[in-house]
Amino acid sequence: MKIKDDSYMKWFRLIAFVVILGATVLCLFPFLLIISASFTQNDAIIKDGYHLIPTVFSFEGYATVFRFPKQVLTAYGVTTMTTIIGTTLGLFFMTMAGYVLQRKDFKYRNFFAFMIYFTTLFGGGLVPWYILITKYLKLTDKLEVLILPGLMTPFLIILMKNFIRSAVPDEVIESAKIDGANDFTIYSRIVLQLSMPGIATVGLFLALHYWNDWFTSSLFINDTTKYQLQYYLYNVINAMSFVAQMGSGTGVSLGDMPTESTKMAMSVIVTGPILFLYPFVQRYFVKGLTIGAVKG
């Protein structure tokens, strides 16, 4: 029996290795193209297309991005700050909500879960929301606007709820209650510790959401010193396609539009740092982290 299992295991691991390796290569390939293009001379890209090795090597893409380094660095600062504050706050609120919603003795959990979920089905559309934020909350050009609207999403709350439910057995909560702990203490002392992989996942997603957000800047920020990094990238990538649509009759001169190599350089610059976050999160994906808890 043992021997058979071992040989299965060997085959299985080999297959797993090959499949994962294949998937990795597929995911890596376009990214290598982008990195290569970011080091290629712009005219060469337009003329010869993309290659894995730059046809005409040049730093001009990066040079253009950093010709006003202050702007990029400020945008980095804004994004880092909104990501950190937003993720911390959002995680705090969402773990609490997730915890409450999975408590079986909480009578209205279904009602509230539905209330939160309902917002993914139904919405007033972009315009009323825009009016709410610009006209009534008056958040235009305020840093709060970059943090507040993204604080929570129904998906992440329900995901959190599920993670907590599977990680924290009811008996643990019951016994803590008998020991006289109140609900918040149970949450902060026990639940948070037991559901670390879930929190890490939700936190990662929330951080990604903040890091990748360009839409809020696009709608509500006019002050260039408050641009998020991604909006900066989004502008660099898109401006050209919008201007390309403008016929000669508009009289808009094309001036200093970002070029292909600039776009690529910008995407490398934007993506780089967030990759450091992932290994940090990975620490929590180690099997057996919750063993002790279940026994308790």
Partner: peptide, 23 residues
């Protein structure tokens, strides 16, 4: 005065919102 710029990206969408939202 505050000089605001829409940027070229999605300018048409923003132009609609600026006029339609009543801000």
């Amino acid at each position: 005065v505050k000089f605001n710029y829409t940027s070229w990206t999605d300018w048409d969408q923003k132009y609609k919102l600026l006029l339609g939202s009543g801000q």
